[in-house]
């Protein structure tokens, strides 16, 4: 008997059965939908944007708000100046980020990140007000390394992408044909407290997470 079969035989024995579940039960389980009721989720009241900003900044992320997409390059420029970074970036090529017209002198490459890239710019598929989280998913135009290798990760999101709860993100993901290889929920810069419980930023992922919120 293969290990797999023996494990399933043991599972069923422990569950007091000898076979897999009958068709009726399977149909019932397939129908199961158990979504947290209102009182089984953290209450999110008031302004979603405000909540998102409060939560993200509590996790050491930073946020700038701009009125429309045309102001994004200027916001990026300001960020780079503030941190004395050269205008050289790797960026996703989809959505709003893909359509940005970068100012002269900006070197923007659309490719996966490599070891020496300092700054990345990506979009997001959603943001969650409940937790102050951005959700970035992998696809051919948004390689996952952009979210993790550079020291500075700049994410551009639109206020319309803001969702209230985690549940709202799953329902959006289910609408797509298939799950992307990686969906990354990111709630701040990388951190660790493994040395004497003292918090330090930039453990392995980005040292800074900056969100530019459009709208």
């Amino acid at each position: 008997m293969s290990s797999r079969d023996s494990i399933f035989a043991d599972l069923r024995k422990s569950l007091g059965r000898t076979e897999s579940l009958g068709a009726d039960k399977v149909a019932e389980l397939q129908q199961r939908s158990d979504v947290a009721r209102e009182d089984e989720r953290p209450q999110v009241s008031g302004d979603l944007i405000e909540r998102f900003v409060v939560k993200l900044t509590a996790g050491a992320g930073t946020v700038t708000r701009v009125r429309d997409a045309s102001e994004v390059p200027r916001a990026v420029e300001q960020y780079l100046e503030e941190h004395q970074l050269p205008p050289k970036m790797v960026a996703a090529s989809n959505g709003l980020v893909g359509s940005i017209r970068w100012p002269d002198g900006f070197q923007v490459e659309h490719r996966p990140a490599s070891r020496d890239d300092r700054v990345s710019v990506t979009g997001a598929i959603a943001a969650v007000a409940e937790t102050g989280t951005i959700v970035v998913s992998s696809d051919n135009e948004s390689p996952t390394t952009l979210n993790f290798l550079p020291d500075d990760h700049i994410a551009v999101i639109e206020t319309g992408q803001l969702r209230t709860h985690l549940e709202d993100v799953w329902s959006a993901l289910r609408e797509a044909d298939e799950m992307p290889r990686a969906v990354n929920f990111i709630s701040g810069p990388s951190k660790t407290a493994d040395v004497e419980q003292t918090l330090a930023l930039g453990a392995h992922g980005p040292r800074r997470l900056h969100v530019i919120m459009v709208g």
Binding site: N140, P143, T144, R181, S187, S190
Partner: peptide
């Protein structure tokens, strides 16, 4: 909420550039 919650489904897709 932790900083990173990552959901992985399958290996790199044909069109993906990393993974």
């Amino acid at each position: 909420f932790s900083v990173y919650t990552s959901v992985f489904t399958g290996p790199k897709r044909n069109t993906d550039q990393d993974g």
